[in-house]
Nucleic acid binder design. Structure first.
Lengths: 240, 240, 240, 240
DNA sequence: GATGAATGAGTGTTCATTCAT
DNA sequence: TATGAATGAACACTCATTCAT
């Protein structure tokens, strides 16, 4: 059982406790009671600072996400060439996901609108719009809640997608002419679906470690080098 | 709101309704009330047939899983060579996941022991054993419940892992000498961690479609051909 | 797990199963599902023969009670003198309760109106009437149900009470002049409250065996001899 | 319908309501809904304070039991000689049971392990151990729950048993040489089975008043004097 | 600013009873 | 006659949220 530094401000202690509990239990099964017990504070305090369960979680996520985005932008801007941009992105992302696997699984799977029968897309004005695949009405407040998590995924993916897009544009990466892979790109984003698909494909596996095969102490650089090699050159021993 | 054929036996209607509700809501947020309302039946009927929520879900999963395993074994045995085995596997798996994405997301993420602070592994006798990463006791019945879902993941992965393992053994696929990727293989399974990692990496992305980029009507064969090509030869336009 | 002779008529098998289950679980916690499973029959059959749970239980009790009453009357009529009548009564009762302890505990405690805030008594016509101690109305059908169990207790006690009453009337037993022990006797029954109290006092202990102190194989005659001696002469080594 | 003083703290009101409802309905048939309705509170409040139904009931029992044990020890230590110790014990117990008849019936009959096919006894270390008479497994938590009620019975009996044991040891009370009455005594407790049997026999009848023969206003001292006389000298008018 | 007592809608589960076959 | 599928009211228990202090 983690013990939280009693000298920290209550707000910080709640966030630390929330991270611990959400990571272990998932969003739905985490309880505010466990969080305040761990933070050694009262329920009123939690609500004073965060308003409700969802805002508490989002605050947690948002802070980390913003920091991650800064890092991703900085580190990939610095790198030179597709390959080193890719490796920079992955190094950064892998380190992040290793520390925040539990929380990001929640965003990717539990809170992802796309897994709740809801299809987020852009309308003609380039604004996000949610469509229920089952014809149900989506309440205004649900919409806002769902969308802000979706945007987080989108932003994180977009950095990688941009790299891949550039790679395709300048002929470094394949451009597979497969019409069935839908283009969800908009003028505003210029992401081809293929790039998104590739991006997702690329690091989805990293985030999870379903079978715990990757040693927790291993060096990021070495692992990402392997992954980038697989991604660029494939798993075959020689061209087939 | 789907309407279920009123002439079907209650048991079938419950299963159909359960699939619908679990797929949309996830395991925890799905309620038996919604299921019976959709199935137009009583709660007692559901419990008569399935005993409890978890058994209802597992019944749903098990039936589909068994059928899938039969198909996977048959279709990959028939195929000749690593590449066509890979493609056969993916064709089969992709078709399956497209129909059962919601349910399989639950198994992969929500019910996956590895995402609940629990580490499943083999003991010296080759039997499964669960270890809590947080020092909490795992109740006997929780253990059984978690394990049966984990075994499903394991079985489905193992077919692909075997193909990849063979590919490495005969030099067709790379064998990356990366010691930090842990070997979880046991004498009984002979799965190298790399094979597992590759297997997971390979189709994790397919299962999800976070961004709905793949058209629902697209041809499986064409898509899997692209994926296999990516997997074998990589995304680079030429060897780098 | 008892196995019931499959050649017996369904009705008999249900009664045998019901006796087993009620004895082990008590009235409320016994389930009809367990009974029909043990009887290897259907729910409809049970309801066809017995109508509802309470009738099933009462049928079980009534049959045994009627046989017991016959025995009690016969055996005490035969005996000569208070002491041997007492001993005869106790022998009979003890043997009965040993075989039917579980069922009779239900009648004495679980279904006893007096333990449910209800006071059964005679009205001016000598008819039974139930009065709620909490001012609640007693539904007509509840009244009938409660009363029939109460009458069973009453009848079984009355045989002993009559013996004790006779003993007091002819000076063999003490008549303690304690006005606070209420007279519930009616012209029809002529039971003084003291006799009832003594009767109850006498064999209440036998029925229960809270601490399992009495060996299941012990001889009835020997035990009842001790009890009657205690009852008549007390536990003191000499008159005190 | 009792009305509970609205100025009392919720916790106290729940306890008062619980006592009322458990006493009238018995343990199993008492519902928490009725309790909270009577206490005029919410279900969450009940669970906040007591955790579950069984803890609520046990809280009720434990408090009263502890107070009773103090009184029993004090009052019997003060009394001089077997007879006055007996009378002191009975006075105390009778007063207690008159106020708590409903609750103690539950402990004696409904929750008594010995009435659920379970045999509590000491093992070689003097620790309590439960054995199922029907070969069923006893779950760890069921064991703890059953045992704590059994210990209450045991403690209350033991005070009296000690008095009776002393009476036998110094020849004041009969020692009936009846081998069939099993010795459950352990070195730690030195209770002969006879003493236990006598103790139970003695006051089992008092607790219940199946037939309401004892006037609720009657004086304890007078009644216990009669009972002790019956117990010591028997019911016969003269030695028989 | 901090608290925690109080709440009640909601959730999985049980089981006596009904009724069409 | 015998059945068992179907039911739904009832129950113990959970937990996000409110609000008076």
């Amino acid at each position: 059982m983690t013990v939280i530094d009693a000298t920290l401000p209550k707000k910080d202690r709640i966030l630390i406790a929330a991270e611990d509990v959400f990571s272990r239990r998932g969003y739905t099964k985490a309880t505010l009671d466990e969080i305040i017990a761990l933070a050694d504070t009262g329920k009123g305090t939690l609500y004073k600072y965060f308003g409700n369960k969802d805002n508490l979680f989002y605050t947690l996520i948002e802070e980390k996400h913003n920091k991650l985005m800064e890092d991703l932008h900085a580190i990939t801007a610095e790198a030179d060439g597709i390959r080193s941009k890719l490796q920079a992105y992955l190094n950064c992302m892998l380190a992040f996901l290793r520390s925040n696997k539990g929380l990001w699984l929640i965003v990717w799977y539990e809170l992802n609108a796309a897994h709740q029968g809801i299809h987020p897309d852009f309308d003609e004005n380039g604004d996000w719009v949610l469509t229920s695949l089952y014809g149900e009405e989506i309440a205004k407040e649900d919409e806002a809640r769902l969308l802000r998590y979706y945007k987080i995924l989108w932003e994180e993916i977009s950095v990688l997608a941009k790299i891949l897009q550039d790679g395709q544009d300048n002929g470094y990466l394949k451009y597979t002419n497969c019409p069935e892979i839908k283009t969800v790109a908009t003028p505003a984003h210029k992401l081809t679906s293929e790039a998104i698909f590739g991006a997702y494909h690329l690091f989805a596996g990293i985030a999870n470690g379903v079978f715990h095969v990757i040693d927790n102490d291993m060096d990021n650089g070495e692992l990402t080098a392997i992954i980038v090699d697989y991604f660029l050159n494939g798993h075959a021993a020689q061209k087939v």
